[in-house]
Amino acid sequence: MIEVEALTKRYGTTTAVDGVSFTAAAGMVTGFLGPNGAGKSTTMRMIVGLERPTTGRVTVDGQRYADVAAPLRVVGAMLDARSMHPGRTAHRHLLALARTHGIPRSRVEEVLGLTGLESVAGRRVRSFSLGMGQRLGIAAALLGDPGTLILDEPVNGLDPDGVLWVRGLVRDLAAEGRTVFLSSHLMHELALCADRVVVIGQGRVLADATTRQIVERSERAGLVRVRTAEADALLVALADRGADVEVRTDGSLHVRGLSVEEIGSTAARIGAPVLELAAETGSLEEAYLQLTAGSVQYRSGRTLGGEVSR
């Protein structure tokens, strides 16, 4: 479990992370979503002690990272694809890390197999593609069989096969009871694999809620699209029931304030043949764009979702 409390990081006059608080709980995948420069990587680096917070604190399983006796066995982190010596082979890179924790050589072979790198284990990292580098980074994170995983943009540079693999992997790791904390700017990616999403913009938490809650809060949520041969009659009938109706250029109606069932029964009552009736669910993409675009208005510390920022 990762607990971040009122974390702030300033570089001179720039505030990269501004009073961020959230918890990434065990047994679930927590997504960390935000545009470039929002403070995602800085927050992750502070979790593993590469950077020190200006104020606030962050603990993993209740301990400061620097106080953990065998960090690789507690936290596995993949922060940057360029975190290895290009002149070393994949095998030697992992072996060097394993040596610092007395992790047996067999575990190195195991994670190489797990990440599909056996065939290139003897090649120098210099010759690796971005995707292979990502896989090696994930292999290094898994090396100590840690209870907490921190992955910064893990699907970056992966082919569709690799993306599917990462998605399955993080789900499996969380199902085993581990804490998985991963950042992405790919919103649909988090929609597919995260249980909970922390949205960050300009160093502040904009939302911290389950993925479903965030999607439901998007602008399109609650919108029902209906197409009928009797558009005008239905428009009047729906307006009478207090719905907010908009006529689209293609002749369909966008209805807010009524459920699919209510609209369906209304249409049946007035005898308007329904050609199409569908509830539009918002996507995480839209929710994200709305949140980050308006990030200035949330400066007072208001958050969407279930929790108020502490």
Binding site: G49, V68, L79, M84, H85, G87
Partner: peptide, 18 residues
């Protein structure tokens, strides 16, 4: 300089925070 010129320092100091 090798740790820093290659970026390997990230792996190193995450593994050994002291």
């Amino acid at each position: 300089t090798s740790e820093f010129s290659t970026g390997n320092f990230r792996s190193t100091f995450v593994a050994v925070p002291r």
